[in-house]
Design a protein around this nucleic acid. Sequence first.
DNA 1: GCTTGCCGCAAGCAACTGCTTGCATTACCA
DNA 2: TGGTAATGCAAGCAGTTGCTTGCGGCAAGC
Lengths: 218, 218
Amino acid sequence: MIDDHRQRILHAAARVYAQHGWRGATTRRIAEEAGVNEVTLFRQFGSKDALLDLMMRECSRIEQDATFPSEPVDPEQELLAWVIVHHTVLVSMRAIVRQMMSDAEARPDAADCASHGPSAAMAQVREYVVKLRRHGWITESGEVSPAEVRAAATMLMGAVFADGMNRDMMPTMFTQPVPETLRAYVRIFLRGIGALQRPAPRAARTVERDSTSTTVPE
Amino acid sequence: MIDDHRQRILHAAARVYAQHGWRGATTRRIAEEAGVNEVTLFRQFGSKDALLDLMMRECSRIEQDATFPSEPVDPEQELLAWVIVHHTVLVSMRAIVRQMMSDAEARPDAADCASHGPSAAMAQVREYVVKLRRHGWITESGEVSPAEVRAAATMLMGAVFADGMNRDMMPTMFTQPVPETLRAYVRIFLRGIGALQRPAPRAARTVERDSTSTTVPE
DNA sequence: GCTTGCCGCAAGCAACTGCTTGCATTACCA
DNA sequence: TGGTAATGCAAGCAGTTGCTTGCGGCAAGC
């Protein structure tokens, strides 16, 4: 309750910043949006820059809670579910992400904040791909090189990112609705790395029990 | 020579806008960047908004001149060459594109301008995919649905877009150099639509000579 | 030579913006 | 009940920003 004002101001700052960017997020606008007198803002945070810096740090702490199962069973469904969550989060934050990307050169904090979410998501996908390989979904001796698999993960993330960021602005590029498109992304990704079919039924999960520790060092 | 000043101002406006965005592109900064007195700017264009509007319209007229061959012979090489050009153009304009994306809500002109290039590029890729199918690279009765092929084109464009826009800001997401990554995108795209192998050698190009006109209606 | 049109220069104006100050009010805690 | 901390309110200040005005210089065309 005591931090009611601080939280209100921080949330208002996020909303105003998402709409107007750094320069457009004036202290008067933020104060009005928060229903608070402008001086309160300076007494609480010192300066506009300090307030926005803190807002960004808070904002980068928001993390999506989507996770992959510990053992892949149905890659298409699992990836699709994960991608939908990621896409939804991205769409809900697209305005603020756009502002951060344009402010990134002037404010390095904005770049850090904007790249935090995608980086974490990327790490999750890479970890999942490792599991796919370990469980035989990706043939080691297949025609797809490891570098290509890595690029495929980047490609999937990039496509989802571009979809979430641009769909509302470029209607001619996105002709099909979101769910179908995301499912297609996932299927093309899996087919692209040769993992759309069931793995060869040689026992893959008996050997791995202890070697999972090697997965952790990210 | 008579429009020397107008052109200088327009180019300066584009540079300043790319760095500082709409609000940050002050008339004084633009005038200084152009080596011109500030009043000249108002006498030539009337107002700051009119100047930036015109700058954006000029900017959206820049078109990449990469084209696909009329008949696909080596899809991987042809797509790769095209994607490299598209990526290069995007990287050279990424600062201004970022600003336009963040200003898109407030200035609809910015959205139009920013979406013009990608839309045209997308149309080219779709046209090329049609040619691929017509020439037998994509099996009509294959396991890849037409909707998925369409989404694959969106996915490729999205991945290239995200790569060009984010690579400099999120180094952890892009571990491999640009050429290898772009080649991987293309290969995954082709494999994803089942067009990485040579087409069945049934004569596909004898029939098409006159039906190429039907390709045009974009 | 003289008009015409474009430009630079100096000055300034009104609105906005980040920030400060002084004072009155309110709520909470000892 | 008195002290303390947080808040609101009004005013203001210096710097910025879009834009205007008035003046003089200067090259081109009649």
